[in-house]
Design a protein around this nucleic acid. Sequence first.
DNA 1: TTTAAAAAGATAGTAATACTATCATAAATA
DNA 2: TATTTATGATAGTATTACTATCTTTTTAAA
Lengths: 226, 226
Amino acid sequence: MKLQLHIKMNEALFLRNPESSELGKNILKHSVQLISKTGFEAFTFKKLAEDIGTTEAGIYRYFENKHKLLVYLTAWYWAWLEFQISFHTNNMNDPAEKLKRVIKLLATTVEDDEKTNYIDESLLYQIIIAEGSKAYLTKQVGEDNKQQFFKPYKDLCAVVGTIILACCPNYKYPKSLASTIIEMAHFQNFFMNNLPSLTDFSESKEESEIIAFLNDLVFNSLKNAQ
Amino acid sequence: MKLQLHIKMNEALFLRNPESSELGKNILKHSVQLISKTGFEAFTFKKLAEDIGTTEAGIYRYFENKHKLLVYLTAWYWAWLEFQISFHTNNMNDPAEKLKRVIKLLATTVEDDEKTNYIDESLLYQIIIAEGSKAYLTKQVGEDNKQQFFKPYKDLCAVVGTIILACCPNYKYPKSLASTIIEMAHFQNFFMNNLPSLTDFSESKEESEIIAFLNDLVFNSLKNAQ
DNA sequence: TTTAAAAAGATAGTAATACTATCATAAATA
DNA sequence: TATTTATGATAGTATTACTATCTTTTTAAA
């Protein structure tokens, strides 16, 4: 028996649901491959169409433009990650242990999840690191936010914030600390691999060091707020 | 007497030194205005040329493309900020006070600095917040880094890291904490204004709260490493 | 099983973007 | 005054980011 994980996506993100057809699934699959290969700037619907063996117009029937597609992919990732977190922290009683597990999940390169067949999570993780912030660092962030495009990200942040508060009800900045952990899990990874002098992990290039740094950061903040 | 602050820029960033002519200075001045107005994605050399009253080709004589121009502006900002920091922390003995001052400088909206006539620092600060990471979140980050485009950012990070170590020589992650402070000073500002539920400052929208959060984060980390 | 609706393929076309090239003119400098 | 250098004016190209239309194929309802 194989379990199928399904993430319900915001309908305003697409013109036609990419999960509803083979072509749609191919768009998701190949866009993840192509964006992680060429970067978001050089990524075009024309190249994507060539990769898939369809036409540009075919892609445009699913996504209005490449920005929406990027937002879709990031939203999908955050929703998937929130599920991972709820799955892996289920039945954990100690909130501090829970928080440690969350940090580990955030900062660990994902392996391809068999439960989702058309998205390669390990490539998507690389996209999130290098392109993720471009989903919201735009002039349209306000409108996009109104349409709830960033809800999965905000939900994840809220979940992490709640765990932080469970660890330490007096802590004053649970949401900001949550967004800091999430962003830094990725930025420190990007820096470690691309601008190593911005980190202390340039020699080992080990994710475990990023995790140790984030744990140190978080638990010192919470310890002193007791 | 008026002091003129001059920042020596990496020559590989431009084709012709924009500081060497009126047109060049206009390119800097108007690009800051136009990018902060339209965002980097919608910003084009054509629009910039129209704004200035010159031609597209004229801009291309100074900058190879808009990415180089963005990198130029961010590099300029980091170099300017490093000077601000060294100026405002000069003669401070207590490294903890120094660090607090640095955090304040990082997270406070800049006023236009009279010492530089063609760059509006307050607009540039907004660009750094919303577009700054796009300077390095690209596929060419490795080559750009080889050409030392990010040296001012790395230098600033090193300066902050040194102050952190002066506060607490045992602290294990001075560079990562430095890059975390720098990035979060801007990201928390962006979130506060655009995706407020990712922060704890959505009501007040006060920079002072970001500063308080960062101080809390940093000094709790250092206190426990004594 | 037929029929109609929906999706996909094929092709064309447009406006804008991201450049490069050329030639004339104006300004600075030697 | 001659000459270099910067700017202006104009043109042109390849690519991007779409939109439109028409045909064929697939799917799903009657």
